[in-house]
Nucleic acid binder design. Sequence first.
DNA 1: GGGGGTAGTTCGTTGCGCGAATTATAGGGG
DNA 2: CCCCTATAATTCGCGCAACGAACTACCCCC
Lengths: 145, 145
Amino acid sequence: MRSSFLVNAVYAESGREYGVTPQQGQLLCVLMARPHGMSELGAMLRLAKSSLTGLVDRTERNGLVQREPDPLDTRAVRVALTARGERVAGEFYDETCRRIEELPACLSPAERDLLAGLLGRVVLDNEVPVVFQEPDEGARAAQSH
Amino acid sequence: MRSSFLVNAVYAESGREYGVTPQQGQLLCVLMARPHGMSELGAMLRLAKSSLTGLVDRTERNGLVQREPDPLDTRAVRVALTARGERVAGEFYDETCRRIEELPACLSPAERDLLAGLLGRVVLDNEVPVVFQEPDEGARAAQSH
DNA sequence: GGGGGTAGTTCGTTGCGCGAATTATAGGGG
DNA sequence: CCCCTATAATTCGCGCAACGAACTACCCCC
């Protein structure tokens, strides 16, 4: 609980520096990988669809994402990063990583790896959606098997 | 990041079962130890004082906490759990612990201890406020030194 | 070519968090 | 003793966040 509280604080503070709320930051990070549909985003972020509409509205108003029609389904919408959104997402992601990596300053490199490995297994076992990951990280993780 | 996301989801779901929002749940957990002043709470929860006023207002309206005058300082207020708040806080705390403990189901007991130890050190080193802890846990932790 | 399910939006409500301005009291120096 | 600054807390107005219910438009399949 308390370590999660710590991570949240870091995430929020990092977002404030780039003028994005934690929720909008999370949306940007998910979209770094590729555009997503609204329902898909709702499932990943665990939000009701009406909540998603609002979040995308506000983030779109900030010029970070845009709605594009889905060529295969007239009902559906694809939410994608704008050029500016791409830049902000990358900077926010990097800054957040930098701050997160400072947290275990009291651990030895071996202990950090150990901690990362344990948390990684817990995350995988609980099927946590990919809400924060480098675009190419999934490929590397898959290779390592 | 993702493990923190997981913990948040568990916390929110656990709170929903007892009709408390995550923020109100956090307030209850802090107050389990003892009553606190508003400024003190603001520092622990990292909230602006005006945010605290609102949070305590809503939680008080739900009958879970109450404001008491500070006998030593006429300006100050002590926020304390009501009888019902005490009960809800305990149940919410226990339920949350139960759910959190289910997360590392894929780890061996030794690995869980290892994980807990590493996270504990990170939390201590970063001076995370005590936002979630059994009333007697601090004493036990202090003894073990 | 209707009918059931799906994708998104709208609307109204509640909660949350902040900053600026305000009130009231505490506490210290002249 | 009195002023003056610092502190404790509240009020107000704002925007963000999340939800459920009701609605529209569309897909697909029988």
